[in-house]
Amino acid sequence: MTNIGYTLLTEQSGPRSLVEHAASAERTGFDFAVMSDHYFPWLHPQGHAPYAWSVLGAVAQVTSDIELMTYVTAPIMRYHPAVVAQKAATLGLLSRDRFLLGLGAGENLNEHVIGRGWPPVNVRHEMLSEAVEIISALFEGGHVDYVGSHYRVDSAKLWDLPDRRVPIGTAVSGPQSIRQFAATSDAMIAVTPESRLCQDWDRASNTTGDRKIGQLPICWDPDRDAAVKRAHEQFSWFAGGWKVNSELPVPDSFAAATSYVRPEDVASAIPCGPESGPIVDAVSSFQQAGFTDVALVQIGVDSDPAGFFAFVREELLPALRPAER
């Protein structure tokens, strides 16, 4: 059965709203909630970028059952991996073992702010590989010393560890990143419903039991035209793809890069409007590819949060879950 999650998108909502949305997502019946970790929004109309880890701490206190996850944190520049390990262990405790640490190689948009430039993708993958080693070692307990090409750790130790070792999910986009991270991760994270990703992951990890966690943007609205307009305004950046999006430094860059994207282009890629059918079809593409989990992103949720969560509870989840049995 595919788990259906909700995305707490820090780029489009302030911290108080995100906490309220998390509580609503749990009441609605979502299986898990993921949170983005950005320093900037993709585009100016999104308008937000609170600190994800503070918000997650609050979310852990207003929820009791729903699984929580970062989607994703980059432990390569803005955060040192030893600090990410400490944050993740603390979230594991605050959530009573409901937290999964989602990691990725990051985007220029969020990492350039520390003034160290932006490394090429192969270097970022090297950095992420070392970061996963450091975080995993710290999760085991005891003191950790580490000397790598990119990081050093001197006698680090996590003094507060949850009962359950925090699982690690790693974002991948192709064979190279899968080969690099499948063996050291508990779950795969990807945003495109490609069966090849799931198959390659299973081969590289030597198991078929790992979770594969995808993400699907949608724009529910009783008025389809309003949904298409909102999706175009806030999510035209989505058309660029990861290879482009990871390199652009500021929201103005995304606006320039996607100025050619038309509303109909966005509507062809993102389910928009009041019907559950297109969303069910889009989720099915992830299911058929082999994904075990799909996190929905409601574009512009603050426009009508009560209406959206009512739609999910009364129509969307009943339409999704019988098809899974």
Score class of each variant (00 low, 15 high):
residue 156 A to H: 05
residue 295 A to V: 07
residue 276 S to V: 11
residue 253 S to F: 10
residue 151 Y to T: 11
residue 69 M to V: 09
residue 207 T to D: 08
residue 145 D to E: 07
residue 166 V to D: 04
residue 250 V to I: 15
residue 265 D to N: 13
residue 64 S to P: 03
residue 126 E to R: 12
residue 228 V to M: 02
residue 264 E to D: 13
residue 81 P to E: 12
residue 98 R to V: 00
residue 158 L to Q: 07
residue 262 R to S: 13
residue 15 P to L: 00
residue 163 D to N: 12
residue 191 V to W: 01
residue 47 G to Y: 08
residue 298 Q to I: 05
residue 139 F to D: 05
residue 36 S to R: 03
residue 253 S to L: 06
residue 47 G to I: 01
residue 267 A to F: 04
residue 136 S to Y: 02
residue 274 P to L: 12
residue 263 P to R: 04
residue 45 P to R: 08
residue 237 W to K: 00
residue 71 Y to F: 15
residue 4 I to K: 09
residue 290 G to W: 07
residue 222 P to I: 09
residue 113 V to E: 06
residue 14 G to P: 00
residue 46 Q to F: 08
residue 30 F to G: 06
residue 225 D to A: 12
residue 294 V to I: 13
residue 138 L to P: 04
residue 275 E to Q: 15
residue 256 A to Y: 07
residue 34 V to E: 06
residue 53 W to C: 02
residue 295 A to T: 03
residue 282 A to M: 07
residue 284 S to F: 09
residue 24 S to D: 13
residue 160 D to M: 11
residue 196 R to Q: 13
residue 298 Q to T: 11
residue 243 K to I: 12
residue 8 L to Y: 02
residue 133 E to C: 02
residue 252 D to W: 09
residue 196 R to M: 11
residue 146 Y to G: 03
residue 167 P to K: 10
residue 16 R to I: 13
residue 227 A to M: 01
residue 42 W to Y: 15
residue 29 G to P: 01
residue 49 A to S: 14
residue 90 T to I: 05
residue 159 W to A: 05
residue 270 I to E: 01
residue 305 P to Q: 09
residue 269 A to I: 05
residue 283 V to A: 02
residue 138 L to V: 03
residue 162 P to F: 05
residue 217 P to G: 07
residue 27 R to G: 13
residue 209 G to T: 14
residue 276 S to R: 12
residue 233 E to G: 08
residue 233 E to A: 11
